[in-house]
Nucleic acid binder design. Structure first.
Length: 137
DNA sequence: GCCAACGTTGGC
DNA sequence: GCCAACGTTGGC
C-alpha cells in the first residue's frame, strides 16, 4: 500500500478540527500534481497529517475512507477530493528541522517540493517517520 | 507554443 | 513581512 502526506494550515483546517469532525472531505486542492496524488489513493491507505506555516510538524495519521470523487461545485470537472478520518495522533510531533536532519528523509517530497500539498511517502520514509513520531505502523 | 508578468504557497 | 520556488495566465 502506498503512503502519503497531507498538508494543511492549522488556521484553515487543523488536526484538532479533524478529530472533532471525525471525518472530513479533503477538498480545495487545485494543484494538478496534488490532484493526481489524490486520484491515486486507495481505500484504507494512510497519510501523515502535517501542519504547514504554523507548527510545521507532523501531528497525526489519517486513513482514506472514500476514494477520489469530483467536486460538485467545480464546473471544470477537474477538481475533486477524497474523504479521510483520523487514525491516531503523533506521540511525538515531528518538526521540519528533525526531518531535514535525518539522512533517511533526504528524498522526502515534502522537503524537495515544499509547495506540494499532497505528496507521496515511500515505504522507507514511512517507517522512519513512524519511528520518529512514535506511531505504530 | 514561447515567455514575461503575476499569483500563491510556505519556510524563514 | 520578505522572498524563493513554482504554477498559471495572457500577449505575441
Amino acid at each position: 500500500m502506498a503512503h502519503w502526506l497531507l498538508k494543511s494550515e492549522p488556521s484553515s483546517y487543523s488536526w484538532d478540527q479533524l478529530v472533532a469532525d471525525g471525518r472530513t472531505n479533503w477538498n480545495g486542492v487545485r494543484n494538478a500534481q496534488a490532484l493526481n496524488n489524490l486520484r491515486a489513493m486507495k481505500l484504507g491507505e494512510r497519510a501523515f497529517f502535517y501542519h504547514s506555516n504554523e507548527g510545521k510538524e507532523i501531528v497525526g495519521v489519517v486513513e482514506v475512507v472514500r476514494t477520489f470523487y469530483p467536486d460538485a461545485a467545480d464546473k471544470s470537472g477537474k477538481l475533486g477530493m477524497v474523504d479521510v478520518k483520523p487514525v491516531m495522533p503523533a506521540a511525538v510531533r515531528v518538526g521540519l528541522p528533525a526531518m531535514k536532519a535525518n539522512p533517511e528523509l533526504a528524498g522526502l517530497s515534502l522537503l524537495k517540493q515544499s509547495r506540494l500539498s499532497v505528496c507521496p511517502v515511500s515505504e522507507n520514509e514511512w517507517s522512519t517517520l513512524c519511528r520518529m513520531s512514535g506511531i505504530a505502523a
